[in-house]
Nucleic acid binder design. Structure first.
Length: 770
DNA sequence: CCGCTCCGCAACGAT
DNA sequence: TGCGGAGCGG
């Protein structure tokens, strides 16, 4: 147990506290993963059977990495641990015991696309307007209900919900929910939320099953506990009811998934449910410099909902955080890429030492282009994952249908793929025949000649025979996943179709399918132990819950700059980090600022972003950016205005670059006077308080604040007193006074009519000069 | 039924 | 801009 020596006091305590409920509050960079790894190793060394340990993580990637580290510590015993994401672990349980709820072990997992497609179909069948009943909205409402454990019947009978739906002009919501659930069930399919919801139902209604797992899992650990929702919490609670050996690790300051039901309340619930729970705080940060840790602390210091803890570090003070200002997103990209290149050369770093973090995936474009121009290799995490590409999903749909013929969404995908002349009309006929005879679609298709002698009977029979031959391979000949998959790819004609497509996309599609087959081969080779584990069905189980976890390039060329969203960056660390697009409406996101709680979440997100950096942190923003191919002006730097100057003064660790000749077209942020721009805040704060005290709603104090979308793009740099201007919202006016302070330009404008005089901040074009 | 064109609309996050 | 869905002619 040498490793215990390398731990600090609270860490060691956390590792050795193995009996009874335990909550570990772990600040960013405090060695959380280490503690979990060692704690698991410690358990095993203390004689706990790895089969009795359940370790729940937040992402597949985290699970994989942690398993590796545990295996390094304890050897092959680590293989026998139950560990994975909530979804994957409970999917496994439902494979075993879903039969109690009427599912077979081959049930399909519907991804979001499948779910939405099913919803669209139902909405259409019911003759509802799909402009009103948008699949997205319906899906989110259903998802929300399931995550709160509200089933369709309860939903229908709940008057509060009904009133809410009526108010949202969606009175049919409840019925849709019910129908959707029914159709999923008939398809022997579960969506992501069902995996949790059904596990709850399973444990609620089948005590014997619950008892089995309660006895099995003597020790349960939950990582990223702050991101669990009620549904997940209840499962964990039930499972640990017997043993009481529940250990959760989390950091309320990094709770950034409230939008999908995660709730800090779970921590409070936990304290209530386990009154004798021990709490250990890990407060020493080993990752970042003092400057970074302090800056991060200051961001969340005044959040209302938080557990008290003080993250500190004994690392060096480090260099200041650097602010970079650009005039457009392209320029932002150029600046960051250049900056990155220069620091790489200056400090002898590798590409992997850098990360560029943004708020939304759509922002990646400018950085990709700039990095490419400088020949800097990069990789993008997130975005369209490999398993979401069309051609990959098509082939997977074949697999799904071969394994589970009730899978309606898979059926719809493949029945006419490759083109075999079976269109909507024919599919509709099949569906009608199926429901008239009260049988499944597959039963109609596989016996098509009994029902129809139409023009397409032969084609359909051919399709059915194809599927049947695949089924025989799987069920009778017990071929492994790779053999079946390769055969299906060929025999279905999918591969040939893609091969014949000589366009660039066609080529990459073909490669993707090959890649998929490769990964299946690898899957088979990795699972040599049991025959069961090599089946197509078992491959599907693994794969339907994978998303962004695609592995790095197989070429071994892994020295790449990482581009990802801040959400995706959780749990990672990089030497140098760029947090980009820190401007109004983007970060904090406009949508998020609807409520106060959400503002707090944006701050936590900011906190997460900052604390990814070990040595150096850069923040940048642009005055305008392209959106939908159009240059869209935005009100820049409002977020920075919020944290600046108060935040800067506090943290004393942000450096605005010294004035030097600006590269073409680029305006460096100047050392402006430390005077708070007085728009937005009337009470001038001297500390970080104002960052927090500012209400989330659009503030109008003294001056009028105008949302950026109301501005006409024009160059206000040319604005002079006496100019006649037009403003989209206020109409015509005359510039009375211009106040230039650094790059901040304010204008007092006397508008015509009854509006009167307004003071407008002119950091970007907002007015048309007439 | 297929394929082409036009149109509308798009927003974050992860399993 | 760029995608997917709808609608229409062949």
């Amino acid at each position: 147990m040498d490793y215990l020596k390398g731990l600090n006091e609270p860490q060691r305590e956390a590792v050795q506290h193995i009996d009874g409920p335990l909550m570990i509050i772990a600040g960013a960079g405090s060695g959380k993963t280490r503690v979990l790894t060692y704690r698991t190793a410690y358990l095993i060394e203390k004689g706990v059977d790895p089969f009795q340990i359940l370790l729940l993580t937040f992402t597949n990637k985290a699970a994989g990495e942690m398993r590796q580290r545990i295996e390094n510590a304890v050897g092959n015993d680590g293989k026998n641990l139950w560990m994975g994401t909530f979804h994957s672990v409970f999917a496994k349980i439902l494979r075993f015991d879903g039969k109690h709820l009427g599912y077979t072990s081959d049930f399909s997992i519907y991804d979001t696309d499948d779910s939405k497609s099913l919803i669209r179909a139902i909405v259409k069948e019911r003759g509802l307007d799909d402009k009103v009943y948008k699949a997205n909205v319906i899906y989110n409402r259903i998802s929300g209900a399931k995550n709160r454990l509200i089933g369709p019947d309860e939903y229908l009978n709940n008057s509060v919900i009904a009133a809410d739906d009526t108010a949202a002009k969606l009175p049919e919501m409840g019925k849709l929910y019910k129908l959707y659930t029914l159709r999923c069930f008939q398809a022997n399919a579960m969506d992501f939320d069902d995996l949790l919801y059904n596990t709850n139902i399973l444990f609620r209604d089948h005590p014997a099953v619950l008892d089995k797992y309660q006895r099995k899992f003597k020790y349960i650990m939950v990582d990223e506990f702050q991101d669990t929702n009620i549904s997940q919490y209840l499962i964990v609670k039930k499972l640990s009811e017997l043993s009481k050996n529940l250990c959760v690790v989390g950091d309320d300051a990094q709770s950034i998934y409230a939008f999908r039901g995660a709730s800090i309340d779970n921590i409070l619930n936990l304290e209530k449910d386990y009154p004798n729970m021990a709490t250990i705080k890990l407060e020493q940060n080993y990752r970042s410099t003092k400057n970074i840790v302090e800056a991060a602390n200051s961001i969340i210091a005044k959040n209302k909902n938080q557990l008290k803890k003080k993250v500190f570090t004994e690392n060096e003070v480090g260099s200041l955080i650097e602010l970079i200002k650009a005039s457009s997103d392209n320029e932002e990209g150029r600046l960051i890429a250049t900056h990155l290149f220069e620091s790489k050369m200056a400090h002898g770093l590798r590409n992997t030492d850098f990360a560029i973090l943004y708020r939304t995936n759509a922002q990646s474009r400018a950085f990709e282009e700039s990095l490419r121009k400088l020949n800097i290799k990069y990789r993008i995490i997130g975005g369209l994952s490999f398993y979401q590409r069309r051609e990959v999903k098509d082939l997977l749909a074949y697999f799904r249908f071969v394994v589970n013929q009730k899978d309606e969404e898979a059926f719809k995908r493949i029945i006419n793929l490759p083109k075999r002349g079976i269109g909507d009309t024919t599919i509709a006929k099949i569906a009608v025949t199926a429901s008239e005879n009260q049988i499944s679609v597959w039963e109609v298709v596989s016996n098509i000649k009994q029902f129809q002698a139409g023009r397409f009977a032969d084609t359909i029979e051919g399709f059915a025979d194809l599927i049947k031959s695949f089924k025989i391979m799987v069920e009778v000949n017990k071929k492994d996943a790779y053999e079946v998959a390769a055969h299906i790819a060929k025999a279905s004609g999918l591969l040939r179709e893609l091969h014949e497509d000589k366009t660039v996309e066609g080529l990459s599609r073909y490669e993707n399918v090959q890649e998929l087959l490769n990964s299946i081969k690898q899957f088979v080779d990795d699972n040599e132990v049991e025959e069961e584990d090599k089946s197509l069905s078992s491959f599907l189980q693994t794969v339907s819950l994978l998303t962004t976890a695609d592995s790095d390039d197989p070429d071994g060329d892994n020295d790449r700059v990482t581009l990802m969203t801040i959400h995706g960056a959780k749990g990672l660390e990089f030497n140098h980090v760029y947090v980009v697009g820190m401007e109004e409406d983007l970060f904090p996101s406009q949508m998020m600022l609807q409520s106060r709680a959400d503002l707090e979440e944006e701050r936590r997100l900011f906190y997460v972003a900052i604390t990814r950096a070990e040595k150096k942190l850069m923040m940048s923003y642009a005055e305008s950016r392209y959106q939908y191919g159009r240059l869209k002006p935005c009100e820049p730097s409002r977020f920075l205005d919020e944290i600046d100057p108060q935040y800067l003064q506090f943290a004393k660790n942000i450096r605005r670059p010294e004035e030097k000749p600006a590269p073409q077209g680029f305006v460096r942020m100047t050392n402006r006077e430390q005077k708070a721009p007085d728009f937005g805040t009337s009470n001038k704060p001297t500390s970080t308080a104002s960052l927090i005290a500012k209400p989330a709603a659009r503030p109008v104090v003294g001056n009028t604040y105008i949302p950026s979308q109301d501005f006409v793009p024009s160059d206000t740099k040319n604005l002079v007193e006496g100019d006649r201007v037009e403003h989209l919202k206020f109409g015509f006016g005359k510039v009375k006074k211009i106040d230039i302070n650094g790059t901040d330009r304010k204008a007092v404008i006397q508008f015509e009519g009854t509006i009167g005089e307004k003071t407008l901040l002119l950091s970007f074009a907002k007015l048309r000069i007439l």
